[in-house]
Amino acid sequence: MVGLLARAFLAKEPGATVVHDPRVVWNTQSEIARGGGRAHAARTGHAFLKQAMRDTGAIYGGEMSAHHYFRDFMCCDSGMIPWLMVAELLSSTGKPLAELVAEARTAFPSSGEINFRVVNPANAIQRVSNALKHKADAEGLTDGLSLTFPDWRFNLRASNTEPLLRLNVETLGDREKLAYHVKQVAALID
């Protein structure tokens, strides 16, 4: 949904900045690039997303947890605005929402957020980093640990609100590799 809303806003304001959280990013960044926008990753949580929007002048900010923030709505969260924007997008594309979502899920399959109860989240994150960081093309520390490889990536972060470690894995069009990498990272966490 963040990618679809980024598409809708960039159609209205090409070149604008869109803020997103670092959990699942490839579809969102693809939509932003396609719309000629600028992607800006911010730490997960409304206070962090809203501040990043103010700092960058972003037109829109979205989290994969279905929180959506709008520059012209004082950078506040709203459920009504996304509904209206998606309705407008459906009207302009002539495609049903299920088809638009399926296209994104096919191109960039993701695990969804998988939660782990661990005694020491920092130690678990460090264990995963030690095992995989040397193989990664890029590392991000905006919110937890994000490692990017040629055809997959993950974000592993401690929850801001619960005693949980949260994992999100995504691939470039390969559901089988998605399952493999989820198991790989989960084994390192446990």
Rank of each mutant, 00 (worst) to 15 (best):
P96I: 00
L100H: 06
L89I: 08
S110V: 04
G94H: 11
A104R: 00
A102I: 06
S110T: 02
T106H: 07
L89D: 06
G112Q: 04
L90W: 10
E103L: 07
G112Y: 03
A87C: 12
N115G: 07
F116Q: 05
S111P: 05
S92T: 15
R105W: 05
A87P: 06
T106P: 00
P96R: 06
A87E: 11
E88Q: 15
G94A: 15
P121H: 08
G112R: 04
V101M: 09
A104Q: 02
A87T: 14
F108H: 03
A107R: 08
A107V: 01
N115V: 05
A104H: 01
F116L: 01
K95R: 13
R117S: 12
A102V: 06
V119I: 08
N115P: 04
S91K: 11
V101F: 01
T106C: 07
N115W: 05
R105K: 13
F116H: 07
F108S: 02
V101N: 03
A104D: 02
L90S: 06
L100C: 08
N115H: 11
F108C: 05
A87K: 12
A102S: 14
E88W: 11
E103N: 03
L89P: 03
L90Q: 08
R117E: 14
T93A: 08
E113L: 03
T93F: 10
P109T: 05
L97I: 08
E113A: 05
E99M: 11
A87Q: 14
K95C: 09
L97S: 08
N115Y: 07
G94T: 13
P96M: 00
N120I: 10
N115M: 04
A87L: 15
F116K: 03
E88R: 15
S92Y: 10
P121T: 10
S92D: 14
G94R: 12
V119L: 13
E88G: 15
E113R: 03
N120R: 15
V119T: 12
R105I: 02
A102E: 15
V101C: 07
T93N: 10
S110P: 02
K95F: 06
N115C: 08
E88P: 10
I114T: 04
N120H: 15
N120E: 15
S111G: 04
A98H: 09
L90M: 15
L97T: 08
V118N: 13
P121E: 13
R105Q: 07
S111N: 03
E113D: 05
I114C: 02
P121W: 08
R117D: 09
E103K: 07
T93D: 09
L97P: 06
E88N: 14
S92E: 15
V118S: 08
G94C: 12
T106I: 04
S92N: 14
T106W: 06
T93R: 07
G112S: 04
S111F: 04
L90R: 05
R105T: 09
I114S: 01
L90G: 13
T93I: 10
E113W: 00
E88L: 13
E113S: 06
F108M: 05
E103I: 02
T106E: 11
E99F: 05
T93Y: 09
E103Q: 14
S91R: 09
